[in-house]
Simulated scan of single mutants.
Amino acid sequence: MVQRRPEEAGNWIRYANFEMKNGDVARARNVFERAVKKVPLADDEEEDDGAGQLFEAFAEFEQWCKDAEDAL
């Protein structure tokens, strides 16, 4: 889906979550990094902000990674 609709944040988030569930943190991070380049910012505040959803998911992912590292 990210190839067909790269502008949709939800596709990227699902893809990154898939990689995380399969234990591949590096690939999940790569998915988020690629997504940041593809998902456009909203032009106005009332428009659905997929980029905001993406950045929130990316931040949660990074926090999870930090928590996992601290647990070791």
Rank of each mutant, 00 (worst) to 15 (best):
E45G: 02
M20F: 02
E46Y: 10
L41G: 07
W12C: 00
L41R: 13
P40Y: 03
Q63L: 09
I13F: 05
P6H: 02
K38A: 08
A9N: 02
E7I: 02
R34Y: 05
R5I: 12
R14E: 15
N22H: 14
K38Q: 10
C65K: 10
P6G: 01
G10A: 14
Q3M: 04
R5E: 13
V2C: 12
G50D: 06
V39R: 13
L54E: 04
E33K: 09
E62H: 03
D24T: 07
E56A: 13
A26W: 02
R34F: 05
K37L: 14
R29E: 14
R4G: 04
D48M: 14
M1I: 05
E45L: 13
Q3V: 04
V36W: 05
M1R: 10
A26G: 00
L54G: 02
R29T: 03
A71K: 11
A57S: 10
Y15D: 05
E45Y: 09
R34I: 03
L41Y: 08
C65Y: 00
F61T: 00
F32Q: 08
A26V: 06
L54N: 06
G50E: 06
N22R: 15
A57C: 05
A28F: 05
N30M: 14
E46H: 09
A68I: 03
A57G: 07
N22A: 10
A28E: 07
P6D: 01
I13Q: 04
P6Y: 06
D49S: 12
R27E: 12
A42Y: 04
R4K: 13
E7Y: 12
Y15A: 08
M20I: 09
N17L: 04
L54S: 06
D49G: 01
K21T: 07
D43W: 11
D70S: 15
E62G: 02
A26C: 01
E8Y: 09
D44K: 15
M20C: 13
N30S: 15
F58Y: 12
A42L: 08
Q63D: 07
Q3W: 05
N11T: 02
L72D: 12
W12Y: 02
F55I: 00
D67P: 03
Q53R: 09
K66P: 02
V2W: 06
E47D: 12
G52S: 14
D44S: 14
D70F: 11
E45V: 11
G50P: 11
E8F: 12
D44N: 15
E62A: 05
D49N: 15
D67W: 04
K38M: 13
E8W: 10
R5D: 13
D24S: 11
Q53E: 12
Q63I: 07
E8C: 08
E7P: 04
E47V: 07
P6K: 00
Q53L: 09
E46F: 10
V25A: 14
D43I: 06
V39S: 13
R34H: 10
L72P: 09
E62R: 14
N30Q: 15
F58R: 06
A42F: 06
A71L: 08
R27A: 10
R4L: 13
R34P: 01
M20G: 01
L72V: 08
A57E: 05
